[in-house]
Design a protein around this nucleic acid. Structure first.
Lengths: 334, 334
DNA sequence: CACCTTTATGCTCATTATGAGTATATATAG
DNA sequence: CTATATATACTCATAATGAGCATAAAGGTG
């Protein structure tokens, strides 16, 4: 098809804007959330240190696809052979690589980010795309075992420093309060959903590699806080993580990540993997049963460990019933 | 600096896509939510029946504005002299006017919708833009007095008919269940947040004028269900209403719509206006006080009516405190 | 086999949160 | 003064939540 359609007749000059579609494709394997990434190294590298990954990314062609979401599903399907089940639009990023491009007059890119959930790790067609644990990019987000070391060892002191470096006293306080709100310092609470707020704080405090890269400056922290991604993809991933963590609680989206039958422990571990926190087992069971989210199949799972558990399935009827609930996991237990 | 982005090298051609920015600007006056609309009649009309309104809409020029949001704030400011406080991105619509334009090969428009909240009705510069009550477009969404007549009189029978018209029995059931979930028929509950679901249902059931207009067919209902808007603007407004109703409950956004001091009744009426339902007064007070959302100023309001009320102000500190709460208004009272 | 480990499941209990009122205070209109 | 509003303070029954205890049912081990 012709790609040079002339639209100038309309009066508006298209400023060479290109619509890109970004997908954050999530699956949970081995109690760990994974995200689909693509090797974006400029040259094939042997050394892993030079490898940099980004999210799958494709153009939106309005000639071919009627809607943005159809376009997304199509090219993700083509490139990875994945059949995306649940797809949700996240955010449209217009300021991508603002300074990253310097004064370049390349085509401006508006990228529409999507969150997609898929069960298990199907085999991937494209050898370029691989599953990575998402905590590789956000090591401070996993509180399942304990408060992540990187927080006490690197993040807290660095943010303390950043606050102290503020020009005036009022700003010092403000900065520190913001750090406390994000990371729960000073007996504050950890709020699992604030993934984006935390990333943006670290970015502003110049603690992530992307900041330095975007303006050609040296990185502040060594070792860097989590692995960088191309462009603003880590920010998009943060948006996706936050959205998913939040959505879990009021919509039954976990089940998009589960096989058709599962034990309650399996379900709980999936939720915990995403939220990055541990939950109280008995109360979790009480909750999902009371909400009518699952029903037993009668079959008993054959597993290792202790007493065999019953297998459950998702009661998809809840979707048509009242205000569809989610796994409203309140505060944690231990 | 080498950009990490590989897009330009990929040989993508911009397909002449134009980015439009849509703003749903909301304010609450006289216990009624209002939205800023613009007269989009093709020709100046004397007859009000021919007038059709749409949301304020402007192009995004990446040359001038660094981010989408800055672009939005700028042209809204220019056109209406309004200073938008709170601004939140809603959704990016890519399938705008799919069939509306027929097989025209006009430039494709991607529109990014924004929700903006502003206090009171400032005077508007542009005479084209006016404030309309938002229930003018969604008369079935206002349950403050009672279940809206239009539901029992027009919507329920029409949806019943639509369900019965389904080709096979399974679909009949499905359609009716969907109608019940949306509108709470058959002793289901009314969920104020499902504004978009309801609009889309009415659209699919061919009950709103936009459906007919989009495919050049006669409208099914007479009188029409609520007033139509240009393009897909009523859908964007529905998205905004749903988002605002939902956000109210977990973020203190109401205060963006309030003057600096207010009585608790005023606050409650604002919340009720947006949610379209009534709340229990004593419990509302208990809630906002317990959450620490407001603090008394000591001043007493001089008003008509009964006993004078204390004036309160928003405790903006809560924003920096723990997981910022909202007006978690649960079910209604009466 | 007795016994320990491990996970599953059932049940209790104290606290809070929520929904719905009752009761009292303090204005204004007649 | 009385009726009528609205404001504000409390009460109370129920439901939801956070934390545990207790028991069941598997496998492994000396």
């Amino acid at each position: 098809m012709s790609d040079q359609t002339d639209h100038s007749a309309k009066g508006w000059r298209p400023h060479g804007v290109v619509i890109g579609l970004n997908a954050v494709v999530v699956s949970v394997q081995d109690e760990t959330p994974h995200v689909l990434v693509v090797d974006r190294s400029r040259t094939p590298t042997v050394d892993d240190a030079d490898t940099i990954y980004g999210l799958p990314f494709g153009p939106f062609d309005p000639e071919t696809h009627r809607t943005l979401e159809i376009g997304l599903r199509t090219w993700v399907g083509e490139q990875t052979s994945l059949d995306l089940g649940y797809v949700e639009q996240l955010y449209t990023f217009g300021d991508r690589g603002r300074d990253a491009f310097g004064a370049s007059d390349e085509a401006h890119i508006i990228s529409v980010g999507y969150l997609a959930l898929t069960e298990q790790a199907s085999k991937l067609h494209n050898p370029d795309s691989v599953w990575h644990k998402w905590y590789r990019y956000f090591p401070w987000e996993d509180w399942r075992e304990q408060s992540p070391n990187i927080i006490a060892e690197a993040i807290q002191p660095a943010l303390r420093q950043w606050a102290d470096d503020a020009p005036d006293p009022g700003q010092k306080t403000q900065r520190w309060e913001r750090a406390c709100m994000c990371f729960g310092f000073d007996q504050g609470e950890w709020d699992a959903e604030k993934v984006l707020e935390r990333y943006e704080l670290l970015y502003e405090a110049r603690l992530v590699a992307e900041f330095a890269r975007d303006r050609n400056q040296p990185v502040t922290t060594d070792p860097p806080l989590g692995e960088a991604m191309t462009s603003d993809h880590r920010r998009i991933l943060a948006t996706a993580m936050g959205r998913l963590r939040s959505k879990l609680k009021y919509r039954p989206v976990v089940f998009e990540l589960m096989p058709s039958t599962f034990t309650l422990l399996h379900l709980q571990q999936t939720v915990e993997a995403i939220l990055g926190i541990r939950l109280h087992k008995q109360n979790f069971r009480r909750l999902v049963e009371k909400e009518g989210l699952v029903e037993g199949t009668g079959k008993i799972s054959t597993r290792t460990g202790g007493r065999p558990a019953e297998e459950f399935r998702f009661r998809s009827e809840v979707l048509t019933e009242r205000p569809a609930p989610g796994v409203r996991v309140r505060t944690i237990a231990r």
